[in-house]
Amino acid sequence: MYSVDLKNIVPKRGLTCLFAKATSDKSKLLHKRLRHLIFKTMNKLVKGNLVRGLPSKLFENDQTCVACQKGKQHRASCKSKTENSISLPLHLLHMDLFGPTFVKSLMKKMYCLVVTDDFSRFTWVFFLATKDETSGILKSFITGIENLVDHKVKVIRCDNGTEFKNREMNQFCEKKGILRQYSVARTP
């Protein structure tokens, strides 16, 4: 926040005291003191006389604040995969159940089950009245889609919700040979 001139250090009996000197440019100093506030906003504060002690002058930005420049930089995101690791439809299905929703559907359903195929990104949506219907719908959906497409579901990826981790789903997945992968519940 302050610039320190190390040439003006005055030692006294073994103690050294640093004196903070403000920069000559008041706008840069106030910009730093006001937590790197944008100069346009600082001018609005002056114009509206909203801050006591703020000098009534026009603040100009000369783009030399290193902290602001570093704050505007951002790292490159993770490299995207060029090849899909999934080579067949229905190999990996992503599933999530959300609800209750504030607005009911036409058939008075309050929950929504979303199933997405990782290979094709094709998505199926099922509307449910209660969470208890999840196991029955998933069992009939997986059996039907496997017969329709002539591929087997290998992996189901879902959260740790009880609608996916219960005795009925455990038995069904064990019988079909479906591996389940769980993420942390309530995460995007």
Score class of each variant (00 low, 15 high):
Val153Tyr: 02
Leu113His: 01
Asn160Gln: 13
Phe141Ile: 03
Ile156Cys: 07
Lys108Asp: 15
Leu92Arg: 06
Leu138Pro: 00
Cys112Tyr: 03
Ser56Gly: 13
Glu60Ile: 13
Thr82His: 12
Ala129Arg: 03
Ile137Cys: 05
Lys109Gly: 05
Cys173Phe: 11
Lys79Arg: 14
Ser80Ile: 11
Asn166Lys: 11
Gln63Trp: 09
Val149Gln: 13
Val155Leu: 07
Lys108Gly: 09
Lys152Ile: 01
Lys131Cys: 04
Val103Ser: 10
Leu88Lys: 12
Leu138Thr: 01
Val184Ala: 15
Ile156Asn: 00
Thr130Met: 03
Asn160His: 11
Ser87Pro: 03
Phe122Glu: 11
Val114Tyr: 06
Thr143Gly: 05
Met169Trp: 01
Leu138Asn: 01
Lys139Val: 08
Leu54Cys: 07
Phe141Gln: 04
Gln69Ile: 11
Pro89Trp: 06
Ser77Lys: 15
Lys81His: 10
Ser56Arg: 15
Trp124Ile: 07
Gly177Ala: 05
Asn61Lys: 03
Phe164Arg: 01
Arg167Tyr: 08
Asp62Thr: 12
Asn61Phe: 06
Leu138Asp: 02
Ile156Met: 14
Glu83Asn: 14
Ile178Arg: 04
Ser85His: 14
Asn84Asp: 13
Lys175Met: 10
Leu58Phe: 08
Arg157Ile: 00
Thr101Tyr: 08
Tyr111Met: 03
Pro55Asn: 00
Thr134Leu: 04
Cys65Met: 06
His74Gln: 15
His91Val: 00
